[in-house]
Write a protein that binds this DNA or RNA. Structure first.
Lengths: 338, 338
DNA sequence: CTGAAAGCGCTTACAG
DNA sequence: CTGAAAGCGCTTACAG
């Protein structure tokens, strides 16, 4: 690949002049420089530019799993904003592991202008190194437990889960179970809190055997759902902590030939891509996922390009109860399944 | 952030010694250097290292849309292999636009060690610049029309679509429609070719009014499906060119209250994430998507790290017909819908 | 083993 | 407007 020196030589000028020409400054030899650039197919080396400027034009994005449609949608929002401002995304998967996340951040710290991340847990201290290194960070959908102030774009987990509980109790359910993700993550904790509060308002308890927790994954939710169905008194409604868990539960119910919502109502936090095409179109707590990504990126870029100072901003997006067909009033009589 | 100079000063050695120590060489002052590194929280600047070495440790990945679950799955495969070899992925969306792709590639060319991409069209010549720049390229799921030899990891579009046609004709369908993506893309062309061949074997034609084409998107497929249903003699079976188009068609059929497979059978190329949970579990042409990504990344890394020379490799993965419940024999009698 | 020095490819005050 | 020169933060032959 041609360097600026070759262009300068060919055009009979100094590298400074070539550099200036490329940055749009007036130069006497514009003609010659332009010709040389074209002839050599020259484009400046971005790595060298970064070393000089200290800017890389890249935003690191660390998510637990790109395959999760929620994060895919978020990535789309991030990308849209990013691209418009000629920044690029450096995408990495932490796989919900704090160690992996730590490695990724250490590697990213010098090659990005900022990091947008969904930390593995709320106790995670890996992100603190970003602050020490002076790299702007924006938390996405999750934050840290400490009172370290960071920018964050979140969703109203408590409110959403509260609405979910209300919907189920309003329908008349009393035997309600929750299959949720880890309580040491922002969504896990918030959704639990909101759901319990909602149940309590209706005077309903969540007995331990209905209070199940696992990774935010399809597989674990599938198992937990089977466990639930095997109980002497299975619930008539299940609230699931995220989209992946909803899928696991729906598959378990389908495997066991349990009718939804006839025998069991299902309400998920987060919609499914094909929510409306399902055998039982999913009732869910919906939220603006693409927008969440777009907001996070805008927040980041305003920090970087306008060098916006000031206190961290915490944006909390509203959720919406989307009533479809996977929830209904419980049947008057029910027998335990086995 | 601390530099190697500060570490050297603190340890009372030269920067060369610090550098050597960090690369695992034996140095007399290991103790002191180690202490200085720790005290300053030093980590080498990856950008500077790249400038020296010419290696960036990054692989550019350019796809039309990360939100498409197929590409999300591919991205997962790419990521898994990548991470294991301590490379990072620089992900960009071309949005099916050759211009955007061109810009992205121009920007990426200096900051990545290789590019894995799904070109917007087969006539696209943007990727040729990668070759000129000496940047290894691997085509993913799509290739170029010319006989430019490039590495590629593809899927057997012709064979898969052929099997799809056979399945439908075997069921007894004769009025079969195809809603496919652009013929100037590898999948669009191949699937068309295979499907037509399959129909022909059964002595069935594809009349122009059953031969619909649009972008590989949900929206266009939705419209085209409505168009199909409005015809005096609508088809009894529809083959869709990709997952997004399948969703569009299924939604259109649901909107119009058309029973699947009672009134219309649907067979899609590529599975849907929730294929089994749908109202009519989808019969489809399935393929190993995560593996396709993993293979592409392995191919890329073998080019880069082993500096493997030799002719371009073209890997074509097999597809599999997955029969579920969205296809059935046509009803003996049918009336036109309106 | 070690350090001084050159150089990766740029950009930008500093003189002119 | 222009060029020589310094410097961004590293690494690595080259002498010692």
């Amino acid at each position: 690949m041609a360097t600026i020196h070759e262009v300068a030589a060919k055009a009979g000028v100094s590298t400074a002049t070539v550099s200036r020409y490329l940055r749009g400054q007036k130069v006497r030899s514009a003609q010659a420089v332009n010709a040389a650039v074209a002839a050599l197919g020259y484009s400046p080396n971005a790595v060298a530019q970064s070393l000089k400027s200290g800017r890389t034009g890249m935003i690191g994005v660390v998510v637990p799993d790109v395959t999760n449609p929620f994060f895919a949608a978020v990535a789309k929002g991030l990308e849209q904003v990013c691209q418009g401002q000629s920044f690029r995304m450096l995408l990495a998967n932490s796989g919900e592991s704090a160690e992996t996340e730590q490695e990724i951040l250490a590697d990213l710290v010098h090659r990005v202008d900022g990091v947008i991340l969904a930390p593995a847990t709320e106790q995670d201290d890996a992100p603190l190194q970003l602050r020490e290194a002076g790299v702007p960070a924006v938390f996405l959908d999750r934050e840290l437990a400490g009172d370290e102030p960071f920018d964050a774009v979140l969703v109203d987990n408590v409110g959403g889960a509260h609405a979910a509980a209300k919907h189920l109790t309003d329908l008349g359910h009393t035997r309600i179970a929750m299959i949720n993700g880890p309580a040491d993550t922002t969504p896990g904790r918030g959704r639990r809190e909101g759901f319990l509060a909602g149940l309590e308002e209706a005077g309903i308890e969540l007995p331990p055997e209905y209070d199940l927790m696992g990774g935010f994954q399809e597989g674990t939710a599938h198992q937990l759902a089977l466990q639930l169905l095997a109980q002497p008194e299975p619930p008539t409604a299940i609230f699931t902590g995220n989209n992946l868990m909803t899928v696991g539960v729906l598959k378990a119910l389908q495997d066991m030939r349990v009718d939804v919502p006839g025998e069991v109502s299902v309400l998920g936090f987060d919609d499914l891509t094909l929510g409306s095409l399902l055998r039982s179109p999913l009732t869910c707590i919906d939220r603006p996922d693409v927008e969440q990504g777009a907001l996070a990126m805008r927040l980041m870029l305003s920090r970087i390009t306008h060098d916006t100072p000031g206190a961290p901003r915490r944006i909390v997006l509203d959720t919406q109860l989307l009533v479809r067909e996977s929830t209904a009033s419980p049947r008057p009589t029910r027998k335990a399944r086995r």
